[in-house]
């Protein structure tokens, strides 16, 4: 059986909020190392990969592999019934029909329990090759979100160009063009504002802003975001979570102009 207790329901609420507009029905694959999810959007352009390691829970117990097929809109409805600070316990039997979610208020005696009916989801699983990216940009997640939002007003696509000079987000649309260039930046007083660019070779790729803006819904989960690029391969946008856990988004490039 599965029994996983999260100190704060907020984590799962935010994760589900960040991915529910991209993917609808997902298997939460549970085993003794934690809870993993991999799902592609309907058009096979973007992929979500989440890993909540067993250390993120206390306690965590999962005796055998269990796939919990859950509709994210149903899960959202139930998670709305939890306060951010509630303790969340997820329980399921070994061959379950339902998953049980229990919310406990940390400062009162309220205890809420919900069951969600599970679905049989036949999901395509993709092998993601280990990639040494040519460029990795680490920047404040709100800054990345703002750039995506601002450029979305002008164009459907953004070109991301990394050179030793910095990283340039540029777009070209009907009303005109725009570009934001960031250089490496280190702020000792305010390390959350740091911008780090690790580059082994220059990279230039074009991506859909609609998808990038969608990924940015995860901005509330981590203060910084890693944007990993190599020419001719999908982009990786990674939000690190506590206990070595993560929420990653992969996006196929567009054919440049």
């Amino acid at each position: 059986m599965l029994e996983a207790r999260l100190e704060q329901a907020e984590l799962l609420k935010k994760v589900v909020d960040a991915i529910k507009d991209l993917v609808q029905d997902c298997n939460f694959d549970c085993n003794d190392s934690g809870v993993a999810l991999q799902a592609m959007d309907n058009s096979h352009v973007a992929l979500v990969s989440m890993m909540l390691k067993s250390e993120a829970f206390s306690p965590f117990r999962c005796d055998r592999n269990i796939a919990l097929g859950i509709n994210l809109s149903s899960l959202t409805k139930v998670l709305r019934c939890a306060q951010n600070n509630d303790i969340l316990t997820v329980k399921a039997e070994d061959a379950p029909d339902v998953v049980n979610l229990m919310f406990e208020s940390s400062d009162s005696d309220r205890l809420s329990e919900y069951d969600i009916k599970l679905m049989d989801i036949d999901q395509e699983h993709l092998g993601i090759p280990e990639t040494e990216y040519a460029a990795t940009v680490t920047m404040p997640s709100p800054e990345f979100q703002r750039i995506c939002r601002d450029l979305s007003a002008l164009s459907e696509s953004v070109s991301i160009e990394c050179t030793k000079e910095g990283v340039k987000f540029a777009c070209n649309g009907d009303i005109g063009s725009g570009a934001v260039t960031l250089r490496s930046h280190s702020d000792v007083e305010n390390p959350d504002q740091n911008i780090k660019i690790d580059l082994t070779e220059p990279v230039a790729l074009t991506f859909s802003l609609k998808y990038l803006s969608n990924f940015c819904k995860a901005s509330g989960l981590a203060k910084s975001v890693n944007i990993c690029l190599s020419n001719e391969v999908p982009l990786l946008v990674e939000y690190g979570l506590a206990a070595n856990s993560y929420l990653r988004f992969y996006l196929a490039p567009k054919i440049g102009d």
Binding site: H125, L126, P129, P234
Partner: peptide
């Protein structure tokens, strides 16, 4: 969407 590649050309189904 115009000019959009998919992930299937990059990642293999397992």
């Amino acid at each position: 969407e115009k000019n959009q590649k998919t992930l299937l050309g990059f990642f293999q189904k397992t």
